[in-house]
Design a protein around this nucleic acid. Structure first.
Lengths: 290, 290
DNA sequence: CGTAGTGTTGAATTGAATCAAGTGTCGTGG
DNA sequence: CCACGACACTTGATTCAATTCAACACTACG
């Protein structure tokens, strides 16, 4: 039994416990089994659940207060009563199937979304029809801020695997931010972070080689997996090589070639969507040695 | 007498009036002459000035209420009394000389800045010493939002020409946003706009050719000049070819070559830093034909 | 079980980088 | 005010990293 983690999985800390195996396979497990897996050894205490349903990572009945992502997502820095107020405006939609769209380019902007489980990609379609991936989103991350200024989403966003999200109507978020200074502060920070991140990618795209971009991408994923308590060294890619290429400004073929070349160098191990980072130090050196 | 406009210049609408000639030359004109130029035919009414000094584009005595950029910059959508409150927290610093730094990478984040005149570039220095330009900023635009999340600026920012700015201490901006819903709303919009803009550049860098990037850059400058009532077809570049290259992910040589090639095609006319867009339609076609 | 989508690998091509040599421009100090 | 030096820009020849084209293998799913 292999051990590659996707953002759909609940990784545990105790050695004895195990986790769900393959991306998108969650639904194939029985609720009972999923419950057993998820309740053993989780870092963040989960409210004793009335029904097993509560445990499924796509379950829409979790409140912000009980969500295991609460310390990464919007509720950070809010106190209990404030979280309760936030909770009231969050809409927990039905899960999204792989390929389903959260919204499409130039749809009217209404909400931002927090990823609860799974993952999403945003992409921009140019007039000439070809698309470019502008971002990947993992649990705890916020989607849709590109629509705030123009009241229309600038990108389309689709689920990469079976995923679930929390919808936060923006006008209500604004209203609440007016009442809760720490929410306003935190949302400014979230947007500032998005800006800083986008500028890093600007640097990456304008000066890094294909190998540097790819190494940087893998390390980025790694630390984002770590953030949600999944293994930073072994994980499943939810996106295709094509998606990665469109994101990094490379072709599918180049991405594939770089993966095999990094493997030959002993830095990573690739098997389809399964990635293992064997030597994070040397991966870092690839980037700084530019 | 040529007619190329820089962000330092005050362009007027009436045909009879003239404007200051060359970038960075403002200080060489007498205050009297500058005053005469600036007061004739300006679109936005300027308060009758007690001293001629008021007219200089770098003059720090202008209030938000009287600033000709007020409808582009932060005060947008604020009413008179609100603008007054904003005014109270804005610090109008001494002008910056060409090359002077507003802040440096990893300085403690304290303020965001609104460009009042001139222009700035932000750039990121990697460990390996080489820098990459992450953005250019023109009058009415906001600088420094990359520092909000981490409390440290992620970039360095320097003046490209003699320039002046309004400093807005961020903690005070937050406090005021708490009181003025429309300020909060507008600042969310400004940040959202920065995010959308950065994602556009992501697309540009990951799929456009050198020619497409350059055309897109020129058209972008053009519409930003138009925003501040300067000619969208004739302007002076305040940045070097090297800066442009670092921004677009190209080398100096390539930028230079593309400029001459676009000139040969009759789309633009280049003379040093003087740019004229001769055929905006065809420039647009270069981009969409990707 | 077949088909569409995804991934790999190789060979040829090419757009932009690099290397190199020059001219042009600006600001400074004599 | 001019001469100098540093920087900015241009142009050409060569190289190279990544794309393109092409053929094939794998996988996953109805």
């Amino acid at each position: 039994m292999s051990q590659f983690w996707s953002a759909n999985q609940t990784q545990t800390n105790s050695e004895g416990s195990r986790a769900i195996l393959v991306a998108n396979s969650v639904e194939k497990k029985s609720d009972i089994e999923a419950a057993k897996l998820a309740t053993t050894g989780g870092k963040i205490p989960v409210r004793p659940s009335a029904t097993v349903l509560k445990i499924c990572p796509h379950n829409s009945a979790v409140s912000c207060a009980s969500c295991r992502l609460s310390e990464l997502c919007l509720p950070i820095a809010l106190n209990k009563s404030e979280i309760h107020q936030l909770d009231a405006i969050v809409e927990r939609n039905r899960p999204f199937k792989k390929g389903e769209h959260l919204y499409r380019q130039s749809d009217e902007f209404k909400s931002v979304y927090a990823v609860r489980s799974g993952s999403f990609k945003s992409y921009f379609l140019s007039d000439s029809g070809q698309g470019r991936v502008t971002g990947f989103y993992m649990p705890g991350e916020i989607i849709g801020m590109d629509g705030i200024a123009s009241h229309k989403y600038a990108n389309s966003t689709a689920a990469l695997e079976h995923s679930s999200i929390c919808e936060i109507p923006f006008s209500q978020l604004e209203k609440l931010s007016q009442e809760l200074p720490s929410l306003q502060h935190h949302f400014f920070a979230i947007m500032g972070n998005e800006i800083a991140k986008d500028q890093q990618i600007h640097t990456l795209l304008s000066s890094y080689t294909a190998e540097e971009r790819t190494a940087s991408f893998l390390l980025g994923l790694s630390s984002r997996y770590a953030r949600v308590s999944l293994s930073p060294t072994r994980f499943l890619l939810s996106m295709t090589r094509g998606d990665i290429g469109e994101y990094l400004g490379l072709t599918v073929e180049t991405v594939s070639r770089i993966f095999t070349s990094l493997q030959k160098k002993g830095l990573i191990s690739v098997n389809n969507r399964e990635i293992e980072l064997l030597n994070i130090e040397n991966l870092r050196e690839i980037i700084s040695g530019s």
